[in-house]
Computed example of a mutant assay.
Amino acid sequence: MLIDDFDSDSEEILQPDQRNKPIANFPKIIIAPFYGDMVQKFAIDNGLPIIGNSKSLNGSNYVYRYQFHDLRLGLIMAPVGAPQCIETMEDLRIMGATKFITFGTCGVLDTTIGKGKIAIPSTAVRDEGTSYHYQPASETIQMPKKTLQIIQEALNTAQIPYMEGKTWTTDAIYRETKNIFQKRKRAGCSFVDIEASAILAWSKFRQIEAYPFFTTADNLDSKMWEVRSDYRDDIPTALKAALAIARLIN
């Protein structure tokens, strides 16, 4: 099976430092939301300077310097989808970042879970391809205990309610079939996303700190897909949570 081809013994042909170089005084902590419009608007509204660029065939993805009180942070859009997300994180690692806080939305597999809840993926089902290039094959991957404790402490200190649980990380949002949904729900999954297991595998392989979380959005646990209301309503709380984590790991 191709997913068993994990190779940690030979050198990578294309390495991130062949396309990127260290940047002087680059922030150690990166906040990377999966909201392109939000990042761009926030940067313009606050006059944030551009300090880097994670380029791809899709174009430029700028890194902005964000000074929040005593915190020196980098802000960038995390591309949606595991492959491009991890490629961007690799670029930022070479530039000088060592700690990554990512947040976006997730679907829920349990109709009793309301919209806009902060969700911590303590375990992720590896139903995507990227993670298998960073860790040996396994059905799931765990968030490190220390990472989970840091997120919990940060959110508790900031008095932000949260829940934690198992997420189903999949590559194909239009192939979340009813049978697979039921299978994942029986296996204990509460959420569905498309990056978490790859982020956890990458951070473990590169020995980098990564702090992924979500806000709960659409509901799969209904007769028809339930969109729910606009996810943008939940961004302020998610940003508050990210900054709380940044304070703790600074």
Results as ranks from 00 to 15, higher is better:
residue 1 M to Q: 14
residue 2 L to R: 13
residue 5 D to W: 12
residue 12 E to P: 12
residue 13 I to P: 08
residue 14 L to R: 14
residue 15 Q to G: 01
residue 15 Q to A: 13
residue 20 N to M: 13
residue 21 K to F: 09
residue 22 P to W: 03
residue 24 A to P: 12
residue 29 I to G: 02
residue 30 I to S: 09
residue 30 I to Y: 07
residue 37 D to I: 09
residue 39 V to D: 04
residue 48 L to N: 02
residue 51 I to A: 11
residue 51 I to T: 02
residue 52 G to I: 10
residue 53 N to E: 09
residue 56 S to V: 09
residue 57 L to T: 10
residue 59 G to W: 04
residue 61 N to T: 09
residue 63 V to G: 05
residue 63 V to I: 15
residue 65 R to E: 13
residue 65 R to L: 10
residue 68 F to I: 03
residue 69 H to S: 15
residue 71 L to N: 04
residue 72 R to Y: 07
residue 77 M to Y: 04
residue 81 G to R: 01
residue 81 G to A: 01
residue 85 C to I: 07
residue 86 I to Q: 10
residue 89 M to T: 03
residue 90 E to C: 07
residue 90 E to Q: 15
residue 92 L to H: 09
residue 95 M to K: 03
residue 97 A to R: 06
residue 97 A to Y: 06
residue 100 F to P: 06
residue 100 F to M: 09
residue 102 T to F: 07
residue 102 T to P: 07
residue 104 G to P: 08
residue 104 G to D: 09
residue 106 C to G: 09
residue 109 L to Q: 12
residue 110 D to I: 03
residue 115 K to C: 05
residue 117 K to Y: 05
residue 122 S to R: 13
residue 123 T to E: 14
residue 123 T to R: 10
residue 128 E to D: 03
residue 130 T to F: 06
residue 132 Y to H: 15
residue 133 H to W: 09
residue 135 Q to D: 06
residue 141 I to A: 00
residue 143 M to C: 02
residue 144 P to A: 01
residue 152 Q to V: 00
residue 153 E to M: 02
residue 153 E to H: 04
residue 154 A to G: 00
residue 155 L to D: 09
residue 157 T to V: 11
residue 159 Q to D: 15
residue 161 P to G: 10
residue 161 P to C: 07
residue 164 E to F: 11
residue 165 G to Q: 05
residue 167 T to S: 13
residue 170 T to V: 08
residue 175 R to C: 08
residue 176 E to W: 02
residue 177 T to R: 00
residue 179 N to R: 10
residue 179 N to E: 13
residue 181 F to S: 06
residue 182 Q to W: 08
residue 183 K to A: 15
residue 185 K to D: 08
residue 186 R to Q: 15
residue 193 D to M: 05
residue 193 D to K: 10
residue 195 E to F: 05
residue 195 E to C: 01
residue 197 S to E: 04
residue 198 A to D: 05
residue 204 K to N: 14
residue 206 R to L: 11
residue 207 Q to R: 13
residue 209 E to K: 12
residue 213 F to N: 09
residue 213 F to I: 03
residue 214 F to Q: 04
residue 216 T to N: 11
residue 221 D to G: 14
residue 222 S to R: 15
residue 226 E to I: 05
residue 226 E to V: 07
residue 227 V to L: 06
residue 228 R to T: 10
residue 228 R to I: 04
residue 229 S to P: 02
residue 229 S to W: 06
residue 229 S to A: 11
residue 234 D to C: 10
residue 234 D to R: 03
residue 235 I to V: 15
residue 236 P to W: 07
residue 237 T to V: 12
residue 241 A to W: 06
residue 241 A to P: 00
residue 242 A to D: 01
residue 244 A to Q: 01
residue 244 A to K: 00
residue 246 A to W: 00
residue 247 R to Y: 11
